[in-house]
Design a protein around this nucleic acid. Sequence first.
DNA 1: ATCGACACTTAGTAACAGCAGA
DNA 2: TCTGCTGTTACTAAGTGTCGAT
Length: 670
Amino acid sequence: MENLVKNEQESPKRKKRKIEDEDEDGDREEEEEEEEEEEEEEVLDSMALWFTNDEEEDEDGGRDGFSDECETEDEDDDDEEEVVDSMALWFTNDEEEDEDGGRDGFSDECETEDEDDDDEEEVVDREKKKQKDPKWSSLEHKGPVFAPPYERLPETVKFWYNGEEMRLSEEAEEVACLYAKMLDDEHTTEEVFNKNFFEDWRNVMTDEEKGKITEFEKCNFKDMNTHIKREKTDEEKLALKEKNDELLKEYGFCKIDGRKEKIENKIEPPSLFIGRGEHPKMGRLKKRVEAEDIIINCGKDSKIPKPPPGHKWKEVRHDQSVSWLASWIGNVQNKTKYIKLDPSSKLKGETDKQKYETARKLHKNIEKIRKDYRDDWKSKEMRIRQRAVALYFIDKLALRAGNEKDEDQADTVGCCSLRVEHIELHEQKDDKEHVVVFDFLGKDSIRYYNEVPVEKRVFKNLQLFMDNKAPGDDLFDRLNTSIMNKHLNDLMEGLTAKVFRTYNASWTLQQQLDLLTNEDDTVAEKILSYNRANRAVAILCNHQRSVPPEVYKKNMEKLKEKIDAIREQISEGERKVKEAQRDAKLDSDKKEKEKETKLKHQLAELEIEKRNSNENKTESLNTSKLDYNDPRITVAWCKKYDVPIEKIYTKSQMERFGWAIVEAGPDYRF
DNA sequence: ATCGACACTTAGTAACAGCAGA
DNA sequence: TCTGCTGTTACTAAGTGTCGAT
């Protein structure tokens, strides 16, 4: 049971080997030269060896006729014309599609003119630009909604220490309640969680309490737990809801550029931190946030929000270059948190649209980019090869970029931070050639497992990258996300690694919708097709959702029943076949055999289904729907096939995608 | 290059609400 | 009318990517 619920692997020991550059001068950036002898179509396979030239040489010096010959031979694409075409297109786009250029009536000219000036002026210019490129011109709000204040426990509810009841000080009691509330949560069985909690709890205790409460094992929160978890009466619930609604009415909106718009979130109440996966900080106390922690951001001549009585803000500023209304620093991770506009806001809608526009631009350039990185697989420079193979993964598999992470976070990776231990190479696997098996924990410690047949050249490159490395070493030791993104930006303005995910997701949705939708289907059937297309995207992006244990168990039972039923049918069939054979009734024998193969096929599929759901995870369609699928594709599909949009989008999704619903006609193409 | 601060997007899960069937 | 399931929303963690300082 336990291991069914958990999907996490053992987190591998993190061991980052810094690859020191031998460069004494520190100045030099020349790379070692790698020579490739591999011939296309394994003509000279035995000669496929690599050697490193430690001697520093300039690019041309290292080139012998050998590699030239190789390159010419390797030219497998005969679509040179097309390449030229798309290149031309690319340059044209670059000139013309300067979308931001004209915004707000500020012309590019003045920027270009200023460029020649010296550094000081440049700084001033940047400042000016920041001012000139505001996200809003007026912003007024009433300040954030604070967490409800702590209410003390009734005297009758006790905390017990070492068998004795104890009345705690207000602060110690508040924090104890946070733990008590979680008693039946799995986390409280984890050692790290308890250790962190106890440490932080002791920090808020009075000296007296600190002296007494020294061993976590002697604490008993059971009474508090039952009190906190008691069912609320209907009146209580109603009162709570009313109070909440009122608060939201007053504080849940702001006025930005004359529009009244929803605010997305409130100040986070105190709690015990729960990270994802094996987080070293689980159980730490997330402290209550006070006005004194909060920076207010609003328009210069707007009404400044009032802090709660007896309090004052940490700071009030008027920064038009950002879109947040208030911010504070979370004490657990030491990261800034924001009160933000709701996704339904105009500002959010605009940036959302911009994201999809960049992805569409990538679509126009993708052929050239793909050709480029395929060429780079043959590069003489290691760093370029690594970059090219990584980009191939980002494009083909929609992997995330993979920034470096701190030690005090869960150990997860993305493309650029993959380690040798995260992939396995198989020359041959299940009658497929050159298979790479990916197995690693990605964002939110969600496991990514994929068996991918790749081009031989990629395979050979990976072998090279892994040569002489320990499992904990970086696969792409000459690469990180900023190198990758810098390169991508050179290929296309605005291009970064994440754009590939957006692009491939939206493109997949459109392709699948084209493929799966039948005009004459009923609305229900069309919706089914939509969900299938959506599911394809979720699978591409590895979006998962865990099924609660009880539900999971029930589903498994159902599945098992089905399997048993089919097994029964098969053995029944076999019996009939035998009978038929005995009676020499060839005709019915054949029919039964057909039936049998069909049933066996069904059985195999069910077994696969069982194996899949064994992971206790299934695709989550929501994330792709919200963040990856250009809503205009969906809107266009609905309009084209007469499916009411509200069958696809919920109320809040309709608000969020309002811009797309207005904009996209039935013929919109991504 | 490398780092940290910062702003913003993307992500899974808990809690809630609403509805169908007993 | 209750109950159990399901879709939706609330919540906030965990990514990405940029920028300026060192």
